[in-house]
Design a protein around this nucleic acid. Sequence first.
DNA 1: CGAACACTTGACAGCCCTCAACGTGAGTGG
DNA 2: CCACTCACGTTGAGGGCTGTCAAGTGTTCG
Lengths: 238, 238
Amino acid sequence: MLSNDGDEFHFCSTCAFSQACLSEGMDKSALKDLHVLVEHIGPFHAGDHIFREGDPFEAIAAVRAGTVKTCVVDRDGREHVLGFHFPGEVIGLDAIDGDQYPCNAVALDTVMLCRFSFPRIAVLAARMPGIQKQLFRLLSRDIGRAALLAGDWSADQRMAAFLIGLSRRLSERGFSATRFQLTMARTDIANFLRLAPETVSRVLRRFEGDGLLRVDRRDMELLDPDALMVLAAPVLRE
Amino acid sequence: MLSNDGDEFHFCSTCAFSQACLSEGMDKSALKDLHVLVEHIGPFHAGDHIFREGDPFEAIAAVRAGTVKTCVVDRDGREHVLGFHFPGEVIGLDAIDGDQYPCNAVALDTVMLCRFSFPRIAVLAARMPGIQKQLFRLLSRDIGRAALLAGDWSADQRMAAFLIGLSRRLSERGFSATRFQLTMARTDIANFLRLAPETVSRVLRRFEGDGLLRVDRRDMELLDPDALMVLAAPVLRE
DNA sequence: CGAACACTTGACAGCCCTCAACGTGAGTGG
DNA sequence: CCACTCACGTTGAGGGCTGTCAAGTGTTCG
């Protein structure tokens, strides 16, 4: 999955840092400093670890292309998926407190990243209020996002909220809102939604029977986003 | 519930901002600026709203005394408890993104607060790296904390994790780790843990029968913290 | 004293997990 | 080209945990 045709400017305009990176009103030398400290890294391939739980925290990163899964593995060996991250979204923010990454980050397909050394961007943030504000907002946003799926929702509501969330985030970045590839396995979706893989299968099958969507392997098409929205509304608080 | 006998210095040393407020190595004038922008507000009484969902975001606040509950109310009128906040802990961080509070904050008993205007503390953070760092850490910590109870844990595991969490946070602030008052109703606990109130009753009753704790109305004594810890371990990731 | 509320206890049902088996598609080597 | 393997996904049967409903008890407060 690529952000688009590779156009540098267009990617940056859809990135979560865009307000900081592209700002025109900022101090010129500071803006240059920001661009200098960005490192383009990758490609990572499906299954590659970007960082592992316990690694020393040095940098946050914006996804340029591909999908990143963050997860932890408990002592019984069971995996818990914490989130999926698409182009423009930022990973590593939960590592600031503790000075080490609290989870693993794994590439689900071919992934490219913009890496920002955290000590250096923090110093820059002190000089550039726009960057500080953007960092505060990104951190604050993740607090609310983490709480969304914590409710006691039904399997149908969780799945609908997951699909609507996917649709919105992808369309915000310039992808189709109704047709997209699921880059993660059913097991990952189940793990993220705190459901059994079998339940995920059954719910998708039923949604398909009800005409809400069409799904063939990883090819997903939302046929009735409004009906899904009704199901997802309480989860998304709307 | 008071932080202690009212000693100003002791409260500040147990507050989440302590590293910033009490730092000796900082620039003197900046440190004075921080102390100047702190407003002591309250008292709020049980049931009082400190802020409401949708209120314009202007300030974050550290709890000085008492317990604050944060919650949202969905369109069906059902309340969802997002968290409980004890002396030394900071509320309002999830409001930075969106510029308005995303939840209600309600006093459960007599509450006193240290209020920090956010625009002013953000300006100060740009001059004082220690304050910026502390803010980043507090925000980052809340991301991880919100994810804890999102797992698919059993009622026993949730309750044990809740009690161990309470015990730790209270003892960190100088209260007893094994005996404390529950400042919230059973309904609030149930709502927070995503359980039915009846289930909370049953689990507490069973824990009491198993000798894990003793509970009389809101008076709680942990008799076997180690056994509770074993139950809570997977939830707390230890 | 009465009413409202919080909490407890019991019976029952429903959702979803577990276990098991089967189907399907991709990659591999002969 | 085909058989084989293996991971992934689907489908079915059964059971356990916990929510729902209902009734009862105890406490607080007007």
